[in-house]
Amino acid sequence: MFTRILSLVKYEAMLEFRNKALVGSLFVYVFSTVFVCYRSFQTVEDPAVWNALFWIVVLFSSTNAVLRTFQRENKGNALYFYQLIRPSELIVAKIAFNYILTLLLVIGIIPIFWLLLGNPVRDMGMFFLVSFLAAGAFSSCLTLVSAMAGKSSNAAGLTPVLGFPVILPVLMVAVKAAGKAASGTALSEYWDLPVVLGAFNIVIVVLSFFLFPYLWRD
């Protein structure tokens, strides 16, 4: 099963990166949002403000990255191709690929922030872990939701409507945890927050694994 998932992930990667324009658009999006922040704020000393800006950029970038999950293949190929694979593996592959994509995004966003806005973050390792867990939760949740929204008439509009109520609390926990990491509090004080983020990730992936096949019948 895992080799099949792996090959599906590679396939997703090929689909996504084959069209260089779309990949580039993501990074342009990230850079322009950060640039706007830079022009407004010059440098940011306060970790809380830095944190807030960071999360705004991460949230919207990951939303952008994931919105096109189900539109990568053109319809003709899709119909033939999907006769051959199991839907539960497909969704795991798509989520895995989106995890990688958001990981790359987070890895990309942090240096850009450093460059333009300074780096008041003290506990960088924990900050990075929290960002990855939260961005992963955003992307997996949005993947599942865009699968559902894709069946309706207005996919692009419906995905945020369905996804954001779920993402909002995750975002709150993430901002709080990242804020604590940025201001350098000891991990023992807020270890439960990253655990919650990890739990969200696991729950969403498990749910997707079981629920997606029902969506696939169409």
Binding site: L144, M148, A149, K151, S152, S153, N154, L158, V161, L162, P165, V166, L168, L207, L211, F212, Y214, L215, R217, D218
Partner: peptide
């Protein structure tokens, strides 16, 4: 509560009954 409002929005946006049932049920469990 917002999540369940979204459930009704989802239901409203799909016309075909069988598909609506399936998608809405999946979202309900989620």
């Amino acid at each position: 509560l917002m999540i369940y409002v979204a459930y009704f929005v989802l239901r409203g946006s799909i016309d075909e009954p069988i598909r609506r049932m399936r998608v809405a049920s999946v979202y309900n469990i989620f």
